[in-house]
């Protein structure tokens, strides 16, 4: 276990150091190299790393809350809710630079919270957290939010619409450190709440009744975890778009390697989530260089088949 963690820490740190160096410009020998490194590459890698942490940890939280390994921000429609919140802010909110960014992420957080409440309510009303119920509820919520986003796009001008479509593909083209700093505030707050509740998440896996009988305040724990996951998903989606399937693949792979006990799973998901997203973004930047693809495309290409495989294996 210790060896596995050491390797993971080395890989995660390595990815943070290595990936800023990779790209179409050789930053060490180019006159504008330092500028590119500081203003583009490092902020981008940091943003990807943080978004990876946020989405992977949210996935892990949702899987414990719904006792279902197929629940993720993306499949539950929570990313969709966050995207709608953020899109509404982009279209109608104030556009002041720093405050604007925080505004978008707060709107994303609000959207995520509404979506997760809706899905939870729907699943509860249908009598449980079975995969088919959750997937259907998620699809329904997603459809609804997507059509509202389309409506917002319809009423936007061509430039705004194009920006929104690019953002919806999910990517990390950021300039300067304001995005990673803003994102880190949300991510740290979410992780902080989650860190205090790892034992509670273990018990939620065994069912609400048993968790309550062991002394967990189930209602309060659920609220705090919904809050934490929505905070992280909301901010990640607002800044980087609804990058899909990270919340599915990362916790799944980590459970295989580190087990389901959240006291070990949680740190593993943080490290691997950051690493995974940084690598995906690195691939997106270099596979078809000089064309840069959105990282969301890579995660979707990997995650789609992965999701189907899990679904088939399950049934």
């Amino acid at each position: 276990m210790k060896l596995k963690f050491t390797i993971l820490i080395l890989l995660a740190t390595g990815s943070l150091l290595l990936f800023p160096m990779i790209g179409s410009t050789d930053v060490l020998n180019d006159p504008a190299g330092m500028e590119i490194l500081l203003k583009l590459r490092i902020p981008r890698v940091l943003t990807a790393f943080l978004a990876g942490i946020a989405l992977a940890t949210s996935g892990m939280i949702f899987q414990a809350l719904f006792r279902n390994p197929l629940s993720t921000p993306f499949t539950l429609g929570v990313s969709g809710g966050a995207a709608l919140g953020a899109a509404l802010w982009m279209r109608f909110g104030t556009a002041t630079a720093l405050a604007g960014i925080v505004g978008t992420s707060l709107a994303g957080f609000g959207g995520a919270l509404i979506a997760v409440t809706l899905v939870y309510g729907l699943a509860r009303a249908k009598g449980g957290f079975a995969t088919d119920t959750l997937l259907l509820a998620g699809v329904a919520v997603n459809f609804f939010f997507s059509s509202l986003i389309l409506l917002i796009q319809y009423f936007s001008d061509a430039g705004e619409t194009f920006r929104m479509i690019r953002w919806l593909m999910g990517g990390f083209s950021v300039i300067g450190f304001s995005t990673p700093i803003n994102l880190s505030l949300f991510v740290l707050a979410g992780l902080g709440v989650c860190a205090l509740l790892t034992r509670e998440m273990n018990l939620l896996l065994t069912g609400d009744e048993l968790a309550a009988a062991r002394g967990v305040n189930v209602k309060r724990t659920r609220k705090l975890l919904f809050f934490s996951a929505s905070l992280m998903t909301g901010a990640a989606v607002a800044f980087c778009g609804p990058v899909g399937f990270v919340g599915l693949m990362v916790p799944h792979i980590c459970r295989k390697l580190f087990g389901a006990d959240h006291r070990r799973l949680f740190p593993a998901v943080i490290l691997f989530g950051g690493l995974f997203m940084t690598v995906c973004d690195g691939l997106a930047r270099t596979l078809l260089a000089p064309i840069e693809m959105p990282a969301g495309l890579i995660t979707a290409l990997l995650g789609g088949p992965f999701f189907i495989w899990l679904l088939v294996k399950k049934s």
């Binding site: 899987q63 009744e209 048993l210 062991r214 967990v216 459970r255 087990g259 389901a260």
Partner: peptide
């Protein structure tokens, strides 16, 4: 303490980890 009707556990929890959960309080 409470012993519910057991059901399938989809998540890979070990026996020891599960029994340790009894110590939660």
């Amino acid at each position: 303490s409470y012993v519910p009707q057991t059901h399938d556990m989809e998540f890979p929890l070990t026996v020891r980890d599960f029994v340790m959960m009894g110590r939660y309080p």
